[in-house]
Design a protein around this nucleic acid. Structure first.
Length: 480
RNA sequence: CGGGGCGUAGCGCAGCCCGGUAGCGCGCGUGCUUCGGGAGCACGAGGUCCCGGGUUCAAAUCCCGGCGCCCCGACCA
Protein backbone atom coordinates (compact mmCIF):
# COMPACT_ATOMS: atom_id res chain seq x y z
CA UNK A 1 0.00 0.00 0.00
CA UNK A 2 1.54 3.23 -1.13
CA UNK A 3 -0.37 5.66 1.04
CA UNK A 4 -1.25 5.04 4.64
CA UNK A 5 -4.09 7.54 4.86
CA UNK A 6 -7.43 7.04 3.21
CA UNK A 7 -9.04 9.98 1.50
CA UNK A 8 -11.84 10.99 3.90
CA UNK A 9 -15.29 9.93 2.71
CA UNK A 10 -16.75 13.39 3.01
CA UNK A 11 -13.99 14.93 0.93
CA UNK A 12 -13.98 12.77 -2.18
CA UNK A 13 -16.35 9.84 -2.00
CA UNK A 14 -15.26 8.38 -5.29
CA UNK A 15 -11.57 8.37 -4.39
CA UNK A 16 -12.42 6.99 -0.95
CA UNK A 17 -14.44 4.18 -2.54
CA UNK A 18 -11.57 3.08 -4.75
CA UNK A 19 -9.08 3.25 -1.90
CA UNK A 20 -11.27 1.18 0.41
CA UNK A 21 -11.54 -1.53 -2.23
CA UNK A 22 -7.79 -1.46 -2.81
CA UNK A 23 -6.96 -1.52 0.89
CA UNK A 24 -9.37 -4.37 1.61
CA UNK A 25 -8.01 -6.21 -1.43
CA UNK A 26 -11.53 -6.79 -2.74
CA UNK A 27 -10.89 -6.17 -6.41
CA UNK A 28 -8.62 -4.57 -8.95
CA UNK A 29 -8.77 -3.27 -12.48
CA UNK A 30 -7.72 -5.78 -15.10
CA UNK A 31 -5.82 -5.25 -18.34
CA UNK A 32 -9.14 -5.73 -20.15
CA UNK A 33 -11.01 -2.49 -20.62
CA UNK A 34 -13.82 -2.10 -18.10
CA UNK A 35 -13.34 -5.56 -16.62
CA UNK A 36 -12.68 -6.13 -12.95
CA UNK A 37 -10.73 -8.82 -11.17
CA UNK A 38 -12.45 -9.91 -7.97
CA UNK A 39 -9.76 -10.86 -5.49
CA UNK A 40 -10.15 -13.56 -2.83
CA UNK A 41 -11.34 -11.12 -0.15
CA UNK A 42 -14.04 -9.79 -2.45
CA UNK A 43 -14.97 -13.19 -3.76
CA UNK A 44 -15.39 -14.50 -0.23
CA UNK A 45 -18.10 -11.89 0.34
CA UNK A 46 -19.73 -12.92 -2.93
CA UNK A 47 -19.68 -16.57 -1.89
CA UNK A 48 -21.48 -15.74 1.33
CA UNK A 49 -24.01 -13.69 -0.60
CA UNK A 50 -24.50 -16.55 -3.02
CA UNK A 51 -24.97 -19.08 -0.25
CA UNK A 52 -27.60 -17.00 1.52
CA UNK A 53 -29.53 -16.07 -1.61
CA UNK A 54 -29.33 -19.56 -3.00
CA UNK A 55 -30.79 -20.96 0.18
CA UNK A 56 -33.65 -18.47 0.00
CA UNK A 57 -34.30 -19.36 -3.63
CA UNK A 58 -34.35 -23.06 -2.85
CA UNK A 59 -36.71 -22.49 0.05
CA UNK A 60 -39.14 -20.89 -2.37
CA UNK A 61 -38.94 -23.83 -4.76
CA UNK A 62 -36.40 -22.65 -7.32
CA UNK A 63 -33.87 -24.91 -8.99
CA UNK A 64 -30.51 -23.94 -10.43
CA UNK A 65 -29.68 -24.47 -14.08
CA UNK A 66 -27.14 -23.20 -16.57
CA UNK A 67 -27.63 -21.75 -20.03
CA UNK A 68 -25.07 -20.78 -22.70
CA UNK A 69 -22.96 -17.64 -22.67
CA UNK A 70 -23.56 -17.13 -26.40
CA UNK A 71 -26.87 -16.01 -27.80
CA UNK A 72 -27.64 -15.99 -31.54
CA UNK A 73 -28.04 -12.38 -32.59
CA UNK A 74 -31.47 -13.07 -34.03
CA UNK A 75 -32.80 -14.17 -30.62
CA UNK A 76 -32.43 -10.72 -29.14
CA UNK A 77 -34.33 -9.24 -32.06
CA UNK A 78 -37.41 -11.34 -31.42
CA UNK A 79 -38.59 -9.07 -28.64
CA UNK A 80 -38.67 -5.58 -30.09
CA UNK A 81 -38.19 -3.59 -26.90
CA UNK A 82 -35.60 -6.01 -25.57
CA UNK A 83 -33.31 -5.65 -28.59
CA UNK A 84 -33.71 -1.90 -28.59
CA UNK A 85 -32.67 -1.77 -24.95
CA UNK A 86 -29.73 -4.13 -25.09
CA UNK A 87 -28.31 -4.04 -28.62
CA UNK A 88 -26.33 -0.82 -28.04
CA UNK A 89 -24.40 -2.41 -25.19
CA UNK A 90 -23.67 -5.89 -26.49
CA UNK A 91 -20.35 -7.51 -27.26
CA UNK A 92 -20.64 -9.68 -30.35
CA UNK A 93 -18.56 -12.64 -31.49
CA UNK A 94 -18.19 -12.60 -35.26
CA UNK A 95 -15.56 -15.29 -35.76
CA UNK A 96 -15.16 -18.83 -34.52
CA UNK A 97 -12.60 -21.47 -35.35
CA UNK A 98 -10.84 -19.02 -37.60
CA UNK A 99 -13.88 -18.50 -39.80
CA UNK A 100 -16.48 -15.77 -40.00
CA UNK A 101 -19.71 -16.98 -38.43
CA UNK A 102 -22.86 -17.13 -40.50
CA UNK A 103 -24.75 -15.59 -37.63
CA UNK A 104 -22.91 -13.50 -35.05
CA UNK A 105 -23.18 -14.60 -31.41
CA UNK A 106 -24.00 -12.04 -28.77
CA UNK A 107 -22.34 -12.50 -25.40
CA UNK A 108 -25.38 -12.49 -23.12
CA UNK A 109 -26.23 -9.16 -21.54
CA UNK A 110 -29.03 -11.15 -19.82
CA UNK A 111 -30.44 -14.55 -20.64
CA UNK A 112 -34.18 -14.18 -21.22
CA UNK A 113 -33.99 -15.01 -24.91
CA UNK A 114 -31.93 -18.19 -24.73
CA UNK A 115 -33.94 -19.36 -21.73
CA UNK A 116 -37.31 -18.84 -23.42
CA UNK A 117 -36.04 -20.67 -26.45
CA UNK A 118 -35.60 -23.66 -24.12
CA UNK A 119 -38.79 -23.10 -22.13
CA UNK A 120 -40.65 -23.43 -25.42
CA UNK A 121 -39.36 -26.97 -25.77
CA UNK A 122 -39.99 -27.98 -22.18
CA UNK A 123 -43.43 -26.56 -21.58
CA UNK A 124 -46.34 -28.38 -23.21
CA UNK A 125 -49.05 -28.62 -20.60
CA UNK A 126 -50.40 -26.75 -17.61
CA UNK A 127 -48.99 -29.70 -15.66
CA UNK A 128 -45.46 -28.52 -16.60
CA UNK A 129 -46.04 -25.22 -14.84
CA UNK A 130 -44.78 -23.38 -13.01
CA UNK A 131 -41.16 -23.58 -14.07
CA UNK A 132 -39.04 -21.96 -11.37
CA UNK A 133 -35.42 -21.59 -12.37
CA UNK A 134 -32.33 -19.71 -11.37
CA UNK A 135 -28.94 -19.34 -13.00
CA UNK A 136 -25.65 -18.18 -11.47
CA UNK A 137 -23.41 -16.76 -14.12
CA UNK A 138 -21.75 -13.85 -15.78
CA UNK A 139 -23.05 -11.32 -18.29
CA UNK A 140 -21.45 -8.64 -20.43
CA UNK A 141 -22.73 -5.14 -21.01
CA UNK A 142 -20.53 -2.76 -22.95
CA UNK A 143 -20.96 0.32 -20.77
CA UNK A 144 -19.22 3.54 -21.64
CA UNK A 145 -17.84 4.19 -18.20
CA UNK A 146 -17.14 1.69 -15.50
CA UNK A 147 -16.63 1.62 -11.73
CA UNK A 148 -15.46 -1.29 -9.62
CA UNK A 149 -18.43 -3.49 -8.65
CA UNK A 150 -21.00 -0.86 -9.63
CA UNK A 151 -20.65 -0.96 -13.37
CA UNK A 152 -18.15 -3.20 -15.08
CA UNK A 153 -18.17 -4.64 -18.57
CA UNK A 154 -18.48 -8.17 -17.25
CA UNK A 155 -20.20 -8.92 -13.97
CA UNK A 156 -21.33 -11.90 -11.93
CA UNK A 157 -24.95 -12.26 -10.98
CA UNK A 158 -27.88 -14.54 -10.54
CA UNK A 159 -30.88 -14.38 -12.79
CA UNK A 160 -34.12 -16.12 -11.96
CA UNK A 161 -36.58 -17.01 -14.70
CA UNK A 162 -40.03 -18.39 -14.07
CA UNK A 163 -43.03 -19.34 -16.19
CA UNK A 164 -46.59 -19.58 -14.88
CA UNK A 165 -50.04 -20.52 -16.08
CA UNK A 166 -51.76 -17.57 -14.47
CA UNK A 167 -51.07 -13.87 -14.70
CA UNK A 168 -51.65 -13.24 -11.01
CA UNK A 169 -49.35 -16.11 -10.08
CA UNK A 170 -46.52 -14.59 -12.12
CA UNK A 171 -47.17 -11.18 -10.63
CA UNK A 172 -47.09 -12.74 -7.15
CA UNK A 173 -43.79 -14.41 -8.01
CA UNK A 174 -42.22 -11.12 -9.09
CA UNK A 175 -43.39 -9.53 -5.85
CA UNK A 176 -42.22 -12.48 -3.76
CA UNK A 177 -38.70 -12.32 -5.19
CA UNK A 178 -38.56 -8.57 -4.60
CA UNK A 179 -39.40 -9.33 -0.98
CA UNK A 180 -36.66 -11.95 -0.80
CA UNK A 181 -34.16 -9.44 -2.11
CA UNK A 182 -35.27 -6.93 0.43
CA UNK A 183 -34.91 -9.43 3.26
CA UNK A 184 -31.47 -10.37 2.01
CA UNK A 185 -30.31 -6.75 1.72
CA UNK A 186 -31.45 -5.99 5.24
CA UNK A 187 -30.62 -9.22 7.05
CA UNK A 188 -27.28 -9.92 5.41
CA UNK A 189 -25.85 -6.75 3.87
CA UNK A 190 -27.41 -4.70 6.68
CA UNK A 191 -28.43 -2.31 3.92
CA UNK A 192 -31.96 -0.99 4.28
CA UNK A 193 -33.76 -0.62 0.96
CA UNK A 194 -36.98 0.86 -0.24
CA UNK A 195 -38.95 -1.25 -2.66
CA UNK A 196 -41.40 -0.32 -5.34
CA UNK A 197 -42.33 -0.04 -8.97
CA UNK A 198 -40.08 1.49 -11.63
CA UNK A 199 -41.47 4.08 -14.02
CA UNK A 200 -41.78 3.40 -17.74
CA UNK A 201 -38.47 4.99 -18.57
CA UNK A 202 -36.61 2.93 -15.99
CA UNK A 203 -38.44 -0.30 -16.79
CA UNK A 204 -36.47 -3.36 -17.98
CA UNK A 205 -36.50 -3.62 -21.75
CA UNK A 206 -39.18 -6.19 -22.50
CA UNK A 207 -40.92 -6.19 -19.12
CA UNK A 208 -44.47 -5.14 -18.33
CA UNK A 209 -43.50 -3.99 -14.88
CA UNK A 210 -40.15 -3.70 -13.10
CA UNK A 211 -39.79 -3.68 -9.35
CA UNK A 212 -36.59 -2.71 -7.58
CA UNK A 213 -34.79 -2.38 -4.26
CA UNK A 214 -33.02 0.93 -3.76
CA UNK A 215 -30.51 1.66 -1.01
CA UNK A 216 -29.09 5.04 -0.04
CA UNK A 217 -25.31 5.27 0.00
CA UNK A 218 -23.24 7.49 2.29
CA UNK A 219 -22.87 10.14 -0.39
CA UNK A 220 -26.66 10.24 -0.56
CA UNK A 221 -26.86 8.69 -3.97
CA UNK A 222 -29.26 5.81 -4.46
CA UNK A 223 -28.13 2.39 -5.59
CA UNK A 224 -30.42 -0.03 -7.39
CA UNK A 225 -29.45 -3.23 -5.65
CA UNK A 226 -31.77 -5.78 -7.28
CA UNK A 227 -34.65 -5.92 -9.71
CA UNK A 228 -37.63 -8.19 -10.29
CA UNK A 229 -39.68 -8.07 -13.47
CA UNK A 230 -43.18 -9.12 -14.39
CA UNK A 231 -42.72 -9.93 -18.06
CA UNK A 232 -46.36 -10.57 -18.90
CA UNK A 233 -46.55 -12.73 -22.02
CA UNK A 234 -44.01 -10.66 -23.95
CA UNK A 235 -41.24 -13.24 -24.11
CA UNK A 236 -43.69 -16.13 -24.30
CA UNK A 237 -45.10 -14.63 -27.50
CA UNK A 238 -41.67 -13.83 -28.90
CA UNK A 239 -40.47 -17.40 -28.34
CA UNK A 240 -43.79 -19.13 -28.76
CA UNK A 241 -43.93 -20.60 -25.26
CA UNK A 242 -47.47 -22.01 -25.31
CA UNK A 243 -49.11 -24.71 -23.23
CA UNK A 244 -52.39 -26.57 -23.16
CA UNK A 245 -54.65 -25.34 -20.42
CA UNK A 246 -56.66 -27.59 -18.11
CA UNK A 247 -59.78 -26.95 -20.14
CA UNK A 248 -58.14 -27.89 -23.43
CA UNK A 249 -57.30 -24.43 -24.71
CA UNK A 250 -53.94 -23.02 -25.75
CA UNK A 251 -52.27 -20.12 -23.96
CA UNK A 252 -48.97 -18.34 -23.60
CA UNK A 253 -47.18 -18.58 -20.25
CA UNK A 254 -46.85 -15.63 -17.94
CA UNK A 255 -43.31 -15.08 -16.79
CA UNK A 256 -40.93 -13.25 -14.51
CA UNK A 257 -37.22 -12.60 -14.25
CA UNK A 258 -35.22 -11.22 -11.38
CA UNK A 259 -31.57 -10.58 -10.67
CA UNK A 260 -28.94 -9.39 -8.24
CA UNK A 261 -25.25 -8.94 -8.95
CA UNK A 262 -21.80 -8.35 -7.52
CA UNK A 263 -22.93 -4.72 -7.51
CA UNK A 264 -24.25 -5.51 -4.04
CA UNK A 265 -20.63 -5.63 -2.86
CA UNK A 266 -20.28 -2.02 -3.99
CA UNK A 267 -23.42 -1.27 -2.01
CA UNK A 268 -21.92 -2.93 1.04
CA UNK A 269 -18.77 -0.81 0.75
CA UNK A 270 -20.68 2.44 0.27
CA UNK A 271 -23.15 1.69 3.05
CA UNK A 272 -20.81 0.68 5.85
CA UNK A 273 -17.28 1.79 4.99
CA UNK A 274 -15.66 4.50 7.08
CA UNK A 275 -12.48 6.56 7.17
CA UNK A 276 -10.49 3.51 8.28
CA UNK A 277 -11.72 1.39 5.40
CA UNK A 278 -14.17 -1.43 4.89
CA UNK A 279 -16.70 -2.67 7.42
CA UNK A 280 -18.19 -6.05 6.60
CA UNK A 281 -21.44 -7.20 8.18
CA UNK A 282 -20.57 -10.33 10.23
CA UNK A 283 -22.86 -12.62 8.24
CA UNK A 284 -20.91 -11.91 5.05
CA UNK A 285 -17.41 -11.65 6.47
CA UNK A 286 -14.72 -14.07 5.41
CA UNK A 287 -13.24 -13.68 8.88
CA UNK A 288 -15.69 -12.61 11.57
CA UNK A 289 -13.00 -12.53 14.24
CA UNK A 290 -9.28 -12.01 14.00
CA UNK A 291 -7.05 -12.86 16.94
CA UNK A 292 -3.92 -10.73 17.29
CA UNK A 293 -1.30 -12.12 19.67
CA UNK A 294 1.00 -9.70 21.46
CA UNK A 295 4.42 -10.65 22.82
CA UNK A 296 8.01 -9.48 23.22
CA UNK A 297 10.08 -12.49 24.08
CA UNK A 298 10.08 -16.06 22.84
CA UNK A 299 8.79 -17.15 26.21
CA UNK A 300 5.87 -14.71 26.02
CA UNK A 301 5.18 -15.75 22.45
CA UNK A 302 4.89 -19.37 23.50
CA UNK A 303 2.53 -18.57 26.36
CA UNK A 304 0.35 -16.18 24.31
CA UNK A 305 0.19 -18.38 21.24
CA UNK A 306 -0.91 -21.36 23.25
CA UNK A 307 -3.87 -19.43 24.64
CA UNK A 308 -4.61 -17.80 21.29
CA UNK A 309 -4.60 -21.07 19.49
CA UNK A 310 -6.90 -22.69 22.02
CA UNK A 311 -9.33 -19.77 21.73
CA UNK A 312 -9.25 -20.06 17.96
CA UNK A 313 -10.19 -23.71 18.18
CA UNK A 314 -13.00 -23.09 20.63
CA UNK A 315 -14.47 -20.32 18.48
CA UNK A 316 -14.13 -22.31 15.28
CA UNK A 317 -15.85 -25.25 16.94
CA UNK A 318 -18.69 -22.90 17.76
CA UNK A 319 -19.11 -22.02 14.08
CA UNK A 320 -17.33 -18.68 14.19
CA UNK A 321 -15.15 -17.84 11.19
CA UNK A 322 -11.96 -16.99 13.04
CA UNK A 323 -8.41 -16.27 11.97
CA UNK A 324 -5.32 -16.22 14.14
CA UNK A 325 -2.85 -13.68 12.79
CA UNK A 326 0.38 -15.43 13.76
CA UNK A 327 2.63 -13.45 11.45
CA UNK A 328 5.91 -12.84 13.19
CA UNK A 329 7.94 -9.66 12.87
CA UNK A 330 4.88 -7.50 12.40
CA UNK A 331 3.85 -5.25 15.24
CA UNK A 332 0.34 -5.56 16.64
CA UNK A 333 -0.52 -1.99 15.66
CA UNK A 334 0.24 -2.72 12.04
CA UNK A 335 -2.04 -5.75 12.18
CA UNK A 336 -4.85 -3.67 13.70
CA UNK A 337 -4.75 -1.23 10.81
CA UNK A 338 -4.65 -3.99 8.26
CA UNK A 339 -7.66 -5.88 9.63
CA UNK A 340 -9.60 -2.68 10.13
CA UNK A 341 -9.01 -1.80 6.51
CA UNK A 342 -10.22 -5.23 5.53
CA UNK A 343 -13.40 -4.75 7.52
CA UNK A 344 -13.20 -7.62 9.99
CA UNK A 345 -16.05 -7.04 12.48
CA UNK A 346 -14.35 -8.22 15.68
CA UNK A 347 -10.77 -8.36 16.86
CA UNK A 348 -9.41 -10.15 19.90
CA UNK A 349 -6.06 -9.06 21.34
CA UNK A 350 -4.18 -11.44 23.59
CA UNK A 351 -1.01 -10.34 25.37
CA UNK A 352 1.02 -11.56 28.33
CA UNK A 353 -1.00 -9.41 30.74
CA UNK A 354 -4.23 -10.97 29.43
CA UNK A 355 -2.87 -14.48 29.76
CA UNK A 356 -1.98 -13.79 33.40
CA UNK A 357 -5.38 -12.25 34.09
CA UNK A 358 -7.37 -14.85 32.16
CA UNK A 359 -8.87 -12.19 29.92
CA UNK A 360 -8.73 -11.01 26.33
CA UNK A 361 -9.43 -7.62 24.78
CA UNK A 362 -12.40 -7.54 22.44
CA UNK A 363 -12.40 -4.67 19.91
CA UNK A 364 -15.41 -3.97 17.70
CA UNK A 365 -14.87 -2.62 14.19
CA UNK A 366 -17.80 -0.30 14.83
CA UNK A 367 -16.06 1.12 17.90
CA UNK A 368 -15.35 0.18 21.50
CA UNK A 369 -12.95 -2.13 23.31
CA UNK A 370 -13.63 -4.31 26.35
CA UNK A 371 -11.71 -6.81 28.41
CA UNK A 372 -13.66 -10.05 28.68
CA UNK A 373 -12.93 -13.29 30.51
CA UNK A 374 -11.38 -15.76 28.16
CA UNK A 375 -13.70 -18.51 29.35
CA UNK A 376 -16.66 -16.35 28.39
CA UNK A 377 -15.42 -15.67 24.88
CA UNK A 378 -17.04 -18.65 23.21
CA UNK A 379 -20.41 -17.63 24.55
CA UNK A 380 -19.93 -13.89 24.05
CA UNK A 381 -18.60 -13.72 20.51
CA UNK A 382 -21.70 -14.96 18.68
CA UNK A 383 -23.77 -12.39 20.53
CA UNK A 384 -21.27 -9.68 19.72
CA UNK A 385 -21.39 -10.63 16.04
CA UNK A 386 -25.15 -10.38 16.07
CA UNK A 387 -24.93 -7.05 17.82
CA UNK A 388 -22.56 -5.65 15.19
CA UNK A 389 -24.80 -6.96 12.42
CA UNK A 390 -27.79 -5.21 13.98
CA UNK A 391 -25.85 -2.05 14.76
CA UNK A 392 -24.85 -1.70 11.12
CA UNK A 393 -28.42 -2.05 9.90
CA UNK A 394 -29.74 0.38 12.49
CA UNK A 395 -27.08 2.96 11.72
CA UNK A 396 -27.72 2.69 7.99
CA UNK A 397 -31.46 3.07 8.51
CA UNK A 398 -31.02 6.10 10.75
CA UNK A 399 -28.73 7.67 8.17
CA UNK A 400 -31.16 7.00 5.34
CA UNK A 401 -34.08 8.48 7.23
CA UNK A 402 -32.01 11.51 8.23
CA UNK A 403 -31.42 12.10 4.54
CA UNK A 404 -34.97 11.52 3.37
CA UNK A 405 -37.40 14.40 2.86
CA UNK A 406 -41.13 14.73 2.46
CA UNK A 407 -43.31 17.68 1.69
CA UNK A 408 -40.69 19.66 -0.24
CA UNK A 409 -41.60 22.42 -2.66
CA UNK A 410 -40.13 22.55 -6.16
CA UNK A 411 -37.65 25.18 -4.96
CA UNK A 412 -36.58 23.36 -1.81
CA UNK A 413 -36.33 20.14 -3.83
CA UNK A 414 -33.85 21.76 -6.22
CA UNK A 415 -31.88 23.17 -3.29
CA UNK A 416 -31.88 19.82 -1.53
CA UNK A 417 -30.57 17.98 -4.57
CA UNK A 418 -27.97 20.73 -5.13
CA UNK A 419 -26.69 20.29 -1.60
CA UNK A 420 -26.18 16.56 -2.02
CA UNK A 421 -29.69 15.26 -1.60
CA UNK A 422 -31.02 11.92 -0.50
CA UNK A 423 -34.45 10.36 -0.98
CA UNK A 424 -37.27 12.78 -1.61
CA UNK A 425 -40.83 11.47 -1.44
CA UNK A 426 -43.26 13.62 -3.37
CA UNK A 427 -46.23 13.63 -5.69
CA UNK A 428 -45.86 12.94 -9.41
CA UNK A 429 -48.27 13.70 -12.22
CA UNK A 430 -47.24 10.57 -14.09
CA UNK A 431 -45.78 12.38 -17.09
CA UNK A 432 -42.42 11.58 -18.58
CA UNK A 433 -42.06 15.28 -19.29
CA UNK A 434 -41.78 16.10 -15.60
CA UNK A 435 -39.54 13.10 -14.98
CA UNK A 436 -37.20 14.29 -17.73
CA UNK A 437 -37.27 17.93 -16.65
CA UNK A 438 -36.39 16.99 -13.09
CA UNK A 439 -33.48 14.90 -14.28
CA UNK A 440 -32.17 17.68 -16.50
CA UNK A 441 -32.31 20.23 -13.74
CA UNK A 442 -31.31 18.23 -10.67
CA UNK A 443 -29.84 14.92 -11.96
CA UNK A 444 -32.41 13.21 -9.73
CA UNK A 445 -34.53 10.40 -11.13
CA UNK A 446 -37.52 8.50 -9.84
CA UNK A 447 -35.97 5.52 -8.16
CA UNK A 448 -39.28 3.82 -7.44
CA UNK A 449 -42.93 4.49 -6.89
CA UNK A 450 -42.61 3.16 -3.36
CA UNK A 451 -44.57 0.25 -1.95
CA UNK A 452 -47.22 1.16 0.56
CA UNK A 453 -45.13 0.83 3.70
CA UNK A 454 -42.64 3.41 2.43
CA UNK A 455 -45.25 5.95 1.37
CA UNK A 456 -46.04 9.11 3.29
CA UNK A 457 -48.81 8.94 5.87
CA UNK A 458 -50.62 11.65 3.99
CA UNK A 459 -50.32 11.05 0.27
CA UNK A 460 -49.23 14.09 -1.70
CA UNK A 461 -51.97 15.49 -3.89
CA UNK A 462 -50.00 17.43 -6.50
CA UNK A 463 -46.95 16.87 -8.68
CA UNK A 464 -43.78 18.26 -7.16
CA UNK A 465 -42.79 19.78 -10.48
CA UNK A 466 -45.84 20.86 -12.45
CA UNK A 467 -48.45 21.16 -9.73
CA UNK A 468 -50.95 19.00 -11.61
CA UNK A 469 -52.80 16.34 -9.61
CA UNK A 470 -50.52 13.56 -8.42
CA UNK A 471 -51.16 10.04 -9.69
CA UNK A 472 -48.54 8.37 -7.50
CA UNK A 473 -46.04 9.19 -4.82
CA UNK A 474 -42.48 8.88 -6.11
CA UNK A 475 -39.11 8.52 -4.41
CA UNK A 476 -36.54 10.71 -6.14
CA UNK A 477 -32.76 10.61 -5.74
CA UNK A 478 -29.59 10.96 -7.67
CA UNK A 479 -28.45 7.47 -8.49
CA UNK A 480 -25.54 5.28 -9.45
C1' C B 1 -18.32 11.33 -29.27
C1' G B 2 -17.45 16.56 -26.73
C1' G B 3 -14.34 19.24 -22.54
C1' G B 4 -9.92 18.67 -19.28
C1' G B 5 -5.48 15.90 -17.49
C1' C B 6 -1.67 12.10 -17.47
C1' G B 7 1.95 8.09 -19.43
C1' U B 8 9.43 7.80 -15.68
C1' A B 9 10.94 1.04 -10.58
C1' G B 10 5.36 -3.01 -7.87
C1' C B 11 2.48 1.79 -6.17
C1' G B 12 2.53 7.31 -5.67
C1' C B 13 5.47 10.98 -7.86
C1' A B 14 9.93 14.63 -8.99
C1' G B 15 13.06 15.65 -13.13
C1' C B 16 11.12 18.18 -18.87
C1' C B 17 10.53 25.04 -19.26
C1' C B 18 16.67 25.82 -19.90
C1' G B 19 19.28 18.52 -23.63
C1' G B 20 24.88 16.31 -20.59
C1' U B 21 25.81 9.27 -15.83
C1' A B 22 17.92 7.66 -13.92
C1' G B 23 15.98 10.22 -8.89
C1' C B 24 12.62 10.53 -4.24
C1' G B 25 8.85 8.35 -0.89
C1' C B 26 6.29 3.90 0.06
C1' G B 27 6.58 -1.16 -0.79
C1' C B 28 10.04 -5.47 -1.56
C1' G B 29 14.81 -8.72 0.09
C1' U B 30 18.75 -9.71 3.98
C1' G B 31 20.66 -8.78 8.97
C1' C B 32 20.45 -6.79 13.92
C1' U B 33 17.58 -4.26 17.54
C1' U B 34 12.15 -4.07 18.23
C1' C B 35 6.77 -5.76 19.41
C1' G B 36 -0.27 -3.47 24.31
C1' G B 37 -2.27 1.24 17.89
C1' G B 38 1.02 1.94 11.25
C1' A B 39 9.05 0.22 14.31
C1' G B 40 14.42 1.92 13.71
C1' C B 41 19.12 1.41 11.52
C1' A B 42 22.38 -0.78 7.86
C1' C B 43 23.02 -3.07 3.30
C1' G B 44 20.54 -4.55 -1.23
C1' A B 45 17.36 -5.91 -5.58
C1' G B 46 14.38 -3.52 -8.99
C1' G B 47 13.91 0.94 -15.20
C1' U B 48 12.74 -0.79 -23.37
C1' C B 49 11.66 7.05 -18.99
C1' C B 50 4.18 4.53 -23.53
C1' C B 51 5.51 3.51 -29.04
C1' G B 52 7.63 5.20 -33.81
C1' G B 53 10.26 8.79 -36.45
C1' G B 54 13.11 13.49 -36.58
C1' U B 55 16.80 17.39 -34.75
C1' U B 56 21.64 16.98 -32.14
C1' C B 57 28.28 15.07 -30.63
C1' A B 58 24.39 13.86 -26.99
C1' A B 59 17.01 13.27 -25.99
C1' A B 60 13.04 11.30 -20.16
C1' U B 61 13.81 16.55 -21.71
C1' C B 62 13.07 19.80 -28.11
C1' C B 63 9.87 18.74 -32.92
C1' C B 64 6.25 15.52 -35.74
C1' G B 65 3.01 11.26 -35.76
C1' G B 66 0.66 7.30 -33.23
C1' C B 67 -1.19 4.46 -28.93
C1' G B 68 -3.00 3.93 -24.07
C1' C B 69 -5.14 5.51 -19.50
C1' C B 70 -7.81 8.71 -15.95
C1' C B 71 -11.49 12.62 -14.67
C1' C B 72 -16.16 15.51 -16.17
C1' G B 73 -20.88 14.90 -19.54
C1' A B 74 -24.37 11.56 -22.79
C1' C B 75 -25.48 5.26 -21.69
C1' C B 76 -26.42 1.93 -17.56
C1' A B 77 -27.35 -3.48 -12.54
Amino acid sequence: MADKKLTPRAQDFSAWYNEVIARAELADYSPVRGCMVIRPNGYAIWEHMQAALDRMFKETGHDNAYFPLFIPESFLAREAEHVEGFAPETAVVTHGGGKKLEEPLVIRPTSETIIYAMFGKWIQSWRDLPVLMNQWGNVVRWEMRTRLFLRTTEFLWQEGHTAHAAEDEAEAEARQMLGIYRTFMEDFIAMPVITGLKTERERFAGAVRTYACEGLMQDNKALQAATSHFLGQNFARAFDVQYQTADGGLDYVWSTSWGASTRMIGGLVMTHGDDKGLVIPPKLARYQVVIVPIYRTDEEQARVMEVADRLREVLAAGGVRVHLDARDGMKPGAKYYEWEGKGVPLRIDIGPRDVSAGTVVLARRTGGKDAIAIDAAAATIPNELEAVQQELLDAARVRREANSRRGLTKKSFIDYMESGGGFVYAGWCGSETCEEAIKDETKATIRVLPDEEFRSPEPPTTCLWCGQPSVAEAAWARAY
